[in-house]
Amino acid sequence: MERVHRGLTSRAAPYWQVAPLVLVFAIFFVMPLVLTAVVSTWRYNEYEMLPALVGSNYASVFTDCLAELPRLCLTFKTYLSTLRLCAAVWLATLLLGFAVAYFLAFHVRSLAWQMALFLVCTIPFWTSNVIRMVSWVPLLGRHGLVNSFAQEAGFTHAPIEWLLFSNFSVVVAFVHLYTMFMIVPIFNSMSRIDPALLEAAYDAGATGWQTLWNVIVPLSKPGIVIGSIFIVTVVIGDYVTIGVMGGQQIASVGKVIQVQLSYLQFPLAAANAMVLLAAVLVIVWGMTRLVDVRAEL
């Protein structure tokens, strides 16, 4: 490629080019994060925050956590419940997302159809979050479609209660919402796989499953990891979906933070947010240990 810039300008150019992004990140990401970290060590009362450097908010997050063992304290219990949901949603979206991406990448040949089917995958995003969640009630509710069908068909005599306002319904709603985040990166990885590799596997006598497990899955790993990071970070911080679909009966870290915010306990909420951030970072770090995403891209 021909070089347009010369001398000083050309050496400075990359810096100028990244400057806008750096600025956006600094203002909208780094600064709020630093402020949250700072506030998390402040003191507070009912109506104001007082600058200080105390660990009492963090201590409060983990109140009785050691003393009450083996009984779980509020924070551990909440994280456990959130992580369990996270794992269930991750597994479901992974299986579903992988299958859909596989179908789109290897079975749908024409680009036009691929685009059309991708658009179909975005349908869940066409309505507002709240309406989407509220509309699960007539489907899964006690007098909803699924229950009336199950009863008429004779599968059950009493309405199935765990369909709605349960861990099950929360997972269903999440899967419905976020499988797209799994499909896109996995599809992206799959579409880079050289068809010659699949042919080679076939020529070497591999069965369909062997090809899938030994060729396609390893080569899709970066997509799987990126998709997993999306899912885990989105689910672990959520409180709206868990609240509405779980009938507000299921604890989530996001909900605890939100309640503290609405009672003006900003420093306590900030401390909780920092702990959550640390937990998410550990999970993401663990996942990137499994696959070196940068090297694979």
């Binding site: 009630v137 509710g141 909803g144 306002f165």
Partner: peptide
């Protein structure tokens, strides 16, 4: 005992109207 808790006006309407 509880079917769900509610937080929002519309949720309360929904719970009651649907017979949940």
């Amino acid at each position: 005992q509880f079917r769900a808790f509610w937080k929002d006006f519309n949720e309360s309407v929904n719970l009651m109207a649907s017979g949940e």
